[in-house]
Computed example of a mutant assay.
Amino acid sequence: MLAVLFILGMLCPLNSAEIPIKLLDPTNDGVVANVFPNAFLLRWPDCTLYGNRSAGLVYTELPTNDNKTQIFTVPSCTASLPGLLLQNLKNGTTYIMEYKIEGTNQTSANLTATTTNALAYEQIDSGLERRSGAMVVITVILSLAMVILLVGLIISIFFS
């Protein structure tokens, strides 16, 4: 029975197989980040099956349901590109994304991800109002060292 199932499994085409879609992971994939304030870094579709084929990434902005498509060519397995960078998105917005391979009916599962909220550069506090204890200790030591050097200089001038 197992042999019959194995033979039937080999004969069935994989037309209904889904293309995996996910964000690149900073810990496993060696990228700096997978979610940016206005972009996503997505893993490419499998290069062994879809290398050098035209594909599309359909993404929908959830609050407004605006659909957009980005057409690209899946790189071959010899290419060393880390992933597909989806840019010019809105900060703090949720998107639904899916791959579609041109010329076939194959699509990926839906991936839902949210861009991070980014502060405007004017809102970043760069002041130094609070100081750590180490900064205070170093400042006191340097101030005392300077006073001791000045006193030593004055004494050496009077005795010389």
Results as ranks from 00 to 15, higher is better:
T107P: 01
S76Q: 04
D25F: 13
T104K: 06
L144K: 06
L2C: 08
T78S: 14
E61Y: 03
G92R: 08
L8G: 15
C77P: 03
S108C: 02
C47K: 11
P37T: 03
A118R: 10
P13E: 12
N65G: 01
L89K: 09
N67I: 05
L62H: 01
Q106R: 10
L14R: 15
T73Y: 05
N105Y: 06
C77K: 11
L5N: 11
I155D: 02
N52W: 11
G51Q: 11
Q106P: 00
L62I: 09
L2E: 14
T115A: 07
S16K: 15
P75S: 08
L57F: 06
R130P: 00
S16L: 15
Q123W: 00
A113K: 04
L84E: 02
L42Y: 03
K90I: 02
A120G: 07
N28M: 11
N28T: 15
M97P: 00
S16P: 03
A3R: 12
N38V: 04
N52G: 08
P20S: 15
N65C: 01
A55L: 09
S156V: 03
Y121A: 08
A39Y: 07
E98A: 11
I148N: 06
G103S: 10
I7S: 13
L42H: 04
M10P: 00
T60S: 01
A3T: 08
L89A: 03
A120N: 07
N34W: 08
T116R: 08
I124L: 13
N105C: 03
L149M: 12
L2Y: 12
I101L: 13
G152F: 05
L119T: 04
Q87S: 15
A39W: 05
R43F: 01
S156D: 03
T64Q: 07
G30A: 08
L111P: 02
A109M: 01
T114E: 04
V35L: 14
E61H: 04
I19R: 14
N65K: 11
F40S: 07
G152Q: 08
M1V: 03
L8I: 07
T139M: 14
P45W: 06
D66K: 06
I154R: 05
S126I: 09
L41E: 05
I138C: 14
P75M: 12
Y121L: 11
K68Y: 00
P63G: 04
A17R: 14
P26Y: 08
P45M: 07
V35G: 01
T107R: 02
A3K: 13
F158H: 05
A120F: 06
S160E: 10
M1G: 08
Y59P: 02
N15S: 14
V35R: 09
N117Q: 12
C47R: 12
T104M: 04
P82A: 15
P75E: 04
I157Y: 14
G133S: 13
M97V: 01
T115G: 07
T104P: 02
V136I: 15
V151G: 07
R53D: 05
R53H: 06
L8V: 07
G56L: 06
P13A: 15
A145I: 05
D66G: 00
T48C: 07
G92W: 03
